[in-house]
Design a protein around this nucleic acid. Structure first.
Lengths: 262, 262
DNA sequence: CGAAAATTTGATCAGCATCAATTTTAGTGG
DNA sequence: CCACTAAAATTGATGCTGATCAAATTTTCG
């Protein structure tokens, strides 16, 4: 059973609060064009961007759907979104009737959490240079899933202040970091575009790893939706997850494992 | 229909990798005693703790259940866990037969995401003093839900190095920050206990807010489980979420809203 | 009791914030 | 299309925060 009609299209101006923290988060929305984010606003007037939503991605699939939003949803550019409330209802009520959509929703939830974890590691463990590089690599990978990259280039319609809000850096330092990235030959910037000149080397220095499940979402799940740029291009298969250092079997104190089962 | 028998109990030594990143994350586990975390390990030997799991909480309810773990699950102390795989199966297959458990799982997922968002804000926007204070306040609130606080005191069985891994700080600086917290009269520390001397003032300076839905989980959902300390005590009702500044209606450029529906 | 882990303290230094000013870019109305 | 204005990017100078290294002390635990 496929989708007859989807929800309504909405457009928003840049920097509009779509949903404020605490408000009812009713339904997910597919981003048809533009960028958005989820953010927490502090009493000192600052904000921390928790999560970016790129064209082709869905916002409002996190655990707080159908409840009070855990953070504010904010547009970062002009934004066009498509209401997916009906699709979500179908997934909840008759998941087996819409297996592709059900799977796609799950994959997107997984990705959102993955990006959130990456965000914590970036901010918690990396220096400015690595943070910016890491985020650019992530943006490129995510946009390429929707066919919105042109080789190693992509449109980045965010101000350096917005990037700072997401990276835990001041806008000034984001600027200096970009300068350094350019001077070292890692990236090139146009008016609002970025080109990764040395993606592999950059991934190396930024400690960037492709997520395990990072194949493009099955677009067949959204038969009536076409993403802004139809530049869809085959995406190379990603390498499998790198297993980590084996330590589960031996104690840091050198003793055998004491796990017991009752 | 209630639960006849639950899964097996397992115990783990401190610092054991329960599940490595990329491994199959099969089933959630209730923590009967001890502390654990979810962490990403970097190639430079460091790690970032993404999420702490306290006694009475459930690990393995995130989006990656039944798939490849998005991070490693690691014990931080001696740990006793109870397998909830069977409960989860019931929730998935016949949620209406176990409404209390279904609701409890959902609440715990919500809380886990909430804590993750707090983690991003702490690390991204706060200074060391605020970070440590904020985390201590969160620990106290979370432990009190399981009745594991004694007034404003609680057991904190983590080393300062572990706290540093979670706060994006060096162990040395965690130490200095604790010293400052004590000198300023905000907290008192015992061998492995913490007492919050001025919780309200501390919440103020740390920008700490109770999450919206922070009432204790309905323990009736887990009839056969008793948490370590049966010191359960009524928890005061929390204040409703503070609504944020209204901005959705007016443009930063002073123009009327251009939202359109098609 | 003895050894290893954890905490504590001191000293030095790098990274980034902050403030301030200038230049460039983008958006608007004429 | 150009002039004008606000936003964004850029650059410089200065200072604070927290990392790092090293060593001493205390606590924990077998």
């Amino acid at each position: 059973m496929l989708i007859g009609q989807l929800g309504s299209v909405q457009t928003h101006r840049p920097n509009a609060r779509l949903i404020d923290e605490g408000q009812l988060l009713e339904r997910p929305r597919l981003i048809r064009s533009g960028w958005a984010c989820r953010a927490r606003y502090l009493t000192n007037g600052r904000r921390q961007i928790l999560n970016f939503y790129l064209p082709g991605e869905i916002m409002g699939l996190s655990a707080d759907v159908d409840g009070a939003a855990q953070a504010s949803y904010v547009s970062l550019t002009r934004l066009s979104t498509l209401d997916l409330g009906m699709l979500r209802s179908m997934v909840i009520e008759r998941p087996h009737d819409v297996p592709a959509v059900t799977a796609a929703f799950h994959v997107m939830r997984l990705h959102e959490e993955y990006h959130l974890l990456s965000q914590v590691v970036r901010i918690g463990q990396q220096k400015a240079f690595e943070r910016v590089a890491h985020l650019l690599l992530e943006f490129h990978a995510r946009l390429s899933k929707s066919g919105l990259t042109e080789g190693n280039s992509f449109q980045l319609p965010l101000t350096q202040e917005v990037l700072g809000d997401g990276l835990g850096l001041s806008a000034v330092h984001v600027n200096r970091t970009f300068k350094l990235l350019k001077r070292k030959g890692y990236v090139k910037t146009g008016r609002s575009s970025v080109t990764l000149l040395e993606p592999e080397a950059l991934s190396q220095v930024a400690g960037y790893r492709e997520p395990m499940d990072y194949r493009p979402v099955d677009r067949a799940a959204f038969p009536h939706i076409s993403i802004s740029e139809p530049t869809r291009r085959p995406v190379p298969a990603m390498r499998p997850p790198a297993a980590f250092g084996r330590d589960t079997g031996s104690s840091p104190n050198g003793r055998p494992i004491g796990d017991s089962v009752s």
